Simulated assay, not measured.
Amino acid sequence: MQDHPSNHAAFYALFETSIGLCGLAWNERGVVGFQLPEDDVSKTRSRIARRFPGIVETPPPPHIQGIVADVTALLQGEARDLSTVPLDLEGVADFDRRVYEIARSIPPGRVLTYGEVAARLGINNARAIGQSLGRNPFAVIVPCHRVVAVGGKLGGFSANGGATTKRRLLAIEDARRDESPTLFDLIS
């Protein structure tokens, strides 16, 4: 995953989830990155430090605590809408912003194909969608795991654990392509 951190001071906090220790990075403009678990805490910290040079670990302020609580609940299978989490998109290419906006519109428990995302953008290039999602610094918050290949195939996932992690995230959400209600729909 590529990152384009802004020039604003950035902070991060690590927090335990049902899938392991995750990290959330932010500045005064919003979330600048999300880190899925690495093999151990030192690798998670090292990855964040490489992604965001000069970042400082600190307890999250109240508004970030709310995001952490929502992410943690979502990763436990609870219905949470992360589509309004403020993101600092400084340095994120316009095409990627448009792809991420569509990905953020996919509710928990649902998926779109790379081709469907491309069609919503008015292009015929599913590969470009996959490449954009591979650069997503906001995994889970911009739910790139909800974009899959045709025919029930997962497609790629650039986070630690690759397709195994993507499959696990989709299983937690009981994701499906059909229109029957999911647990998330019934709770809303």
Rank of each mutant, 00 (worst) to 15 (best):
S18H: 06
D39N: 15
D40G: 08
A175G: 05
D39I: 14
S6L: 07
R168T: 14
P86L: 04
L133Y: 09
N160D: 09
F34H: 05
R146Y: 00
W26N: 03
T165C: 13
F157S: 10
V56A: 11
V31I: 15
T182Y: 05
D178V: 02
F34Q: 03
G30K: 06
E38Q: 15
R127P: 00
I67K: 02
L170V: 09
L154K: 08
V117N: 08
G33Q: 09
Q2E: 12
R168A: 13
Y100N: 09
V92T: 15
G161S: 11
L24M: 13
P181G: 02
E16L: 07
E28A: 13
P53C: 10
R177Q: 15
R97V: 12
P37V: 10
E38C: 14
G30A: 03
L82A: 04
H4T: 12
N136K: 02
P108L: 02
A171V: 13
G152C: 06
A171H: 08
P181K: 02
S18W: 05
V111P: 02
L112C: 08
A149V: 00
L186N: 07
Q35V: 03
G91E: 02
A149C: 01
P59A: 14
C144L: 08
R177W: 11
D178T: 06
L21D: 05
D81L: 10
P108H: 07
